[in-house]
Nucleic acid binder design. Structure first.
Length: 543
RNA sequence: GGUGGGUUCGUCUAACGGUUAGGACUCAAGAUUUUCAUUCUUGCAAUAGGAGUUCGAUUCUCCUACCCACUACCA
């Protein structure tokens, strides 16, 4: 006997960009599917005709792609993908707007078996009742009590009902909640949950005006038709779980009802509430995987554009609300598939920590080989070249343009600075002196080192360098060290002054490494330039 | 207001009912170092509060507090 196949779905509605929390839900679905040899489905829930946002769906697809969370099945017209025996696919289409015709007959079925009824109350009527109730400090709900005095097929005569169905177009089909029934539910993450049906309201299932179902109907019908085995979704759905249980029951589908797992929400890093799309990037870090250009023209930061590696981003969100129970923190997508488990998802909401996110990216950067990073950096340089304007470190002068296109050279420059970087873009500041010679020098460093007899020492070192035949790290290092040692010069001061001459500031990796990578000629040229341009600060003789 | 969910260092989290409550990030100190980093070592720092069950409670039960979600012809 084959165990029923794992089929899970990620079902976003295209009302805006996907934020981190959404990506995490997709990721957990994906991991669960892959771990169980199952199918990960992307379904677009676009039953709200009024909230469609252009570009949102493309954004969702691209964001998942960037993360490496590839659907096995889903979409099209014309988001593509599909699959699961393509031609005779029994599950599609995957866009709810394309499934419009399916839902009505299921709503009708519920009317027939007495689990639903027609409601003719206008939204204005209902809103008025809500306001009235609010004024009296209680909440109006369309439920087992109030439905007895409202405009629906339960209170109206069959003839009147028939007439209204034919002559009006703003009626809905509502679910008829049973009275005083304890609904026992189970959640993989939270365990057993009970709720009394009396606390529920009679949700609208289908709307005549746009002939579309609401979330609840569409969701249950599609999950059933698509043979979804596990529903992994956000905690905001927990309150409607009893309704969903009852819908499965009303349709007679309890035997094939999926299991549920409700994920806790991602919280704002500061203040209150869940992380929301509205937050934008006001808090100093992105909440979206990709940059998002709203139809209004407003632009929100994205992790991708801010320089995060997709593997790092996936790792970060995977560990936000889940942990393997070991002390391992770095996981590839492949490893996550192996060790992920819904049982270890934490119940409490998680707050995102930007500092830790930096750390993750740094870890991933270090794992990448130098050439890969160099190629990525070269691509960035094509779009945004080095900035040679004056800054606190002094001014720079581009002296060897050919090196900007030299992959080997850039690779070496990067390898020397790798453990100083968090993002690839950090190499702009970290390696600029390998491409630009200083023409002005950090005043602070000049003041600190460039004084007394130092310039004359540097002059001598220049000649020493000039005479080194084999210009490699070992030889240069030994030669300079020996020279400084035999003359009993202050080692640190000389080296830092040499650094000032070559780099223009007090930064960069090992001095000898810099000399060797720059090359003998370039190094000598920079030293000469420094000797000519830096004004020595003589310390006053002690009186 | 009602219903449901949640609560361990600042943050993410670990801990068969028995641990000096562990790890990571951040921060601080020290060591190394030719700068800045890196690296290494050490440190700071938590079971929301109160009852109960138990020989023993972070863990189980109840109450309180606080937080979150839901309470739409939105998902």
């Amino acid at each position: 006997m084959e165990k029923s196949k794992v089929r899970v779905r990620f079902a976003p509605s295209p009302t805006g960009p996907l934020h981190m929390g959404g990506v995490r839900t997709a990721l957990y679905n994906y991991l669960f599917a892959k771990q169980n040899g199952g199918t990960f489905i992307l379904r677009i829930e676009d039953t709200d005709s009024t909230r469609f946002v252009p570009g949102a769906e493309d954004y969702i697809i691209e964001a998942l792609k960037w993360c490496g969370i590839n659907p096995d099945e889903g979409l099209d017209k014309d988001g593509h993908i599909v699959q699961s025996s393509d031609n005779n696919n029994p599950y599609g289409p995957y866009r709810q707007s394309l499934r419009k015709d399916i839902y009505k007959k299921y709503a009708d079925k519920l009317i027939e078996n007495g689990h639903a009824y027609y409601a003719f109350d206008s939204s204005e009527d209902l809103n008025r009742r809500r306001e009235e109730a609010e004024a009296h400090k209680y909440t109006f709900t369309y439920n087992y009590i109030t439905r007895k005095e409202l405009n629906n097929s339960l209170t109206l005569s069959p003839d009147k009902t028939k007439e209204l169905l034919e002559t009006t177009t703003n009626w809905t089909i509502r679910f008829k909640n049973p009275e005083d029934k304890m609904i026992k539910m189970h959640d993989i993450i939270r365990g057993d949950i009970e709720m009394n049906s009396n606390t529920l309201d009679d949700k609208v299932l289908w709307k005549r005006n746009d002939e579309l179902p609401t979330y609840h109907l569409a969701n249950i019908v599609d999950d059933h038709l698509m043979k979804i085995s596990h529903v992994i979704r956000g905690e905001e759905w927990l309150p409607s779980l009893p309704l969903h249980y009852m819908l499965y029951d009303a349709f007679g589908w309890t035997d094939s009802q999926p299991e549920f797992a409700h994920l806790s929400l991602l919280l704002k890093p500061t203040g209150k509430g869940k992380l929301s799309k509205r937050d934008g990037d006001k808090m100093g870090f992105p909440i979206f995987p990709l940059e998002w250009k709203a139809p209004t023209g407003e632009i929100s930061h994205g992790y991708r554009e801010d320089g995060y590696f997709p593997e790092a981003f996936v790792n970060i969100i995977a560990l936000l609300g889940w942990n393997p129970g070991t002390e391992q923190e770095i996981f590839s997508l492949k490893e996550l598939i192996d060790v992920f488990s819904l049982e270890r998802v934490v119940k409490a909401g998680a707050r995102f920590n930007p500092e830790k996110a930096h750390w993750f990216n740094q870890e991933y950067l270090r794992m990448k080989d130098d050439k890969t990073l160099a190629k990525e950096f070269m691509e960035m340089l094509k779009v945004k070249p080095f900035d040679n304007s004056t800054n606190e470190d002094g001014a720079k002068d581009l002296i060897n343009n050919s090196r900007i296109n030299d992959l080997e050279y850039i690779t070496k420059a990067i390898s020397l600075n790798k453990d100083r970087a968090t993002f690839v873009k950090d190499f702009y500041n970290l390696t600029d002196f390998f491409f630009y010679a200083p023409i002005e020098y950090s005043a602070k460093t000049v003041k600190k080192f460039w004084k007394n007899e130092i310039p004359s020492h540097i002059e001598e070192i220049k000649d020493v360098i000039k005479n080194i035949e084999t210009f490699d790290v070992e030889t240069v290092s030994k030669t300079i060290h020996d020279y400084i040692e035999t003359h009993e010069w202050p080692f640190g001061k000389v080296m830092n002054s040499l650094r000032l001459a070559l780099v223009g500031a007090s930064k960069g990796p090992d001095m000898v490494e810099i000399l060797v990578l720059l090359g003998k000629d370039e190094s000598i040229m920079r030293i000469e330039r420094a000797l000519a341009n830096i004004k020595p600060r003589q310390t006053l003789p002690q009186s």
